[in-house]
Write a protein that binds this DNA or RNA. Structure first.
Lengths: 217, 217, 217, 217
DNA sequence: CATGAATGAGCATTCATTCAT
DNA sequence: CATGAATGAATGCTCATTCAT
């Protein structure tokens, strides 16, 4: 699944990159406030700091903006996530930290994540598929970790259960955004991470002695 | 939170009910295919089997259609759900069956549920609040059951954990629709119910001897 | 110029008369508030006290309502006017009283007159012509009186001046309604009649000794 | 009472001015033929020589067109009027000429004036108030002149009578348009000016020796 | 490269009128 | 005679996209 090509009339790659960063920043803000359909291309151009004509020098259609947003959000999630993960941890502690870090990245990028999940359905088939692949690539990161834990005897799950557990981890992250109207009333991000990971861990059939031995409380 | 009043120029209540059923049926189909913003009122009218003028005899604005859809979907969920629940079961078996039934209702009403979750953000504040209250009222049904199990010593959760577990049940239901592009490839509804409830039960700190003793496998 | 025939599906003349009175009463009220174009036939029906279907049993089109209004207003003006005029007066006093009475009738029927003058342009050519004839017939009443005064040597005007003076009388009446936003702030109806008739009388070249000898002040 | 701001998406002030002139010209023509409500925005755009989209680049709503018309008409009246007035005249001659010039401006701008008086009632409260203020500002021009004549002993009127006389002058101008179906059959503009000003002057209690000494006949 | 004026297809909504009951 | 549900042409307005400067 290769990256969809967004057409540009401009040659200078550096400039393309710069302008598209401006576009994505403006679009996330606007899409979050008013939704994709409620936002006009004029508004995106204006908030980006240039004219509607210039906007169309860097994109081919309004949908491209949404695609750029989704692409950038995934990129930023992975980047921020990697920066948070401590490569010196092992076993359950490592798993805990990876999930915890993921939740916290989602927390920091709430608006971006929300926009992506609520608006990506407006993408064309091609672009949507690309975005879904990105989603799967994140899932496979968790799968790798869970398999390692299973192989180390820390959790007891078959392949089907591992896959499901990974969906649950991802969705537990997303629900922090799309259910924030209620969940963020009930918990702060620390409590949410703690309780949610605890339930996920138990769900994974984690050995009693392994779980929560040295975990943050 | 009282029901929002959708205005109608027609007096015959029976007719209003009938026509609105037609409207909701057409709208779910269309919104599912093309989204709320991608569907025109003319299409809704036409698919409903009457003219655009007649459509507006039964609603005040396009948004009302979405509201009618959300309201009807919740109503139908609860109704179908209640019909599936066996009032003779107790304890863990009852809890299992209630969650299982919920998942199966969501399964049968996939399109409706998907539309509701993806498009309800286009509702006005008032209408959205009403819909969110409905969501909470479903959550509180699960809370009641979980508290009963906790009081019976079947699960060990504090109040915060109960609330979170209920969110997880609800979201596990919804994800069967909004992640169906991948989840329904990996599992059929039977497998999904089984595995998902298993992980949820473990997450609830269910006593080993209680869980899965007499459950379907 | 014969009365335009407004079609009715109903045979009973008495009923037609009754219903049309209701229609005119409702229409004047509504047209005054919201204008002819801002008023819907449904509103006219509802305010009249019956259904839209019934409304169309007594008229052929929305324009007919306006025509009925104009016709009724002229009729009522003339009727009220005649009732006010004292047939025992003569000369200048009679002229004064006729103009004064006319102004006072317009005052009492402000809303009706305003509607007629502001909305009659929406009539079809035929109907408009009929209404304009009514206007002329009122003008000719004044002309008859002015000629009598001229023949009695009370005023000195040629035929052209008489006609113009009559226009001025009529318009002085109407302006009490269409300039009421300012004129009725500056004068009450008594002052307006007095000052306005005084200026009109002077304009008519009224003999000094004749004018205002026995007039109300 | 400051000028209502009509929104435009276009930045070039020169272009805004040009396009709005086209719009006003087209709108006067169409409103005169078919009234404000009988004219569609599409027709205005087409008659203006551009597309409906372009029309809405220069106005915010249909009502704005009417406002632009009224504003432009008043501006043009005053401008044309000032150009006609001979600043070397004095006394009665000056007053005569000012009224005469006013009537002749109204004559030349018949359609515009008619549209303004018949359709301004469709303006919103704010815009209507602004237009009425313009009307009053014209009235105050006459008031200034009449007071000068009174102070010079040429006419004998108290303040109340002056105000009323000014209303009568204005309305005498307007009636040349709104009663043109009959008045313009009876008089040409020259005769109308002569007779009407004569009656107005007499109404103002003008001294016999002052009036009509050197006036055009 | 950047600008922004121009375009017109498309949409939600209204409302006079009809006609079956 | 009365009712009111149904109709659909018509309208004000929006907005993604283009292209001449």
């Amino acid at each position: 699944m290769k990256k969809k090509q967004v057409p540009s009339l401009v040659k200078d790659q550096r400039l393309i990159h710069l302008r598209r960063e401006q576009i994505v920043k403006a679009a996330v803000e606007l899409f979050h406030q008013k939704g994709f359909h409620g936002t006009t291309t004029r508004e995106v151009a204006q908030t980006s700091g240039f004219s509607i004509g210039t906007l169309y020098e860097y994109i081919g259609s309004k949908e491209d903006i949404l695609y750029l947003v989704c692409d950038a959000v995934y990129e930023e999630i992975v980047e921020k996530w990697e920066r948070l993960v401590d490569e010196n941890l092992h076993g359950i502690n490592r798993l805990y930290q990876i999930i915890d870090a993921y939740f916290r990245v989602v927390h920091v990028m709430q608006n971006e994540v929300l926009v992506m999940y609520q608006e990506s359905k407006s993408l064309s088939d091609d672009a949507l598929n690309y975005v879904l692949q990105k989603e799967l690539s994140i899932k496979s990161i968790f799968e790798k970790e869970l398999r390692a834990c299973r192989d180390a005897g820390l959790i007891r799950l078959n392949e089907e259960e591992i896959s499901l557990a990974c969906h649950n981890i991802l969705v537990a992250g997303h629900m922090w955004t799309f259910r924030r109207w209620i969940v963020q009333k009930e918990y702060d991000i620390d409590a949410y991470c703690r309780w949610q990971i605890q339930q996920l861990f138990r769900g994974m059939n984690m050995k009693a002695e392994a779980a929560f031995s040295n975990l943050p409380t």
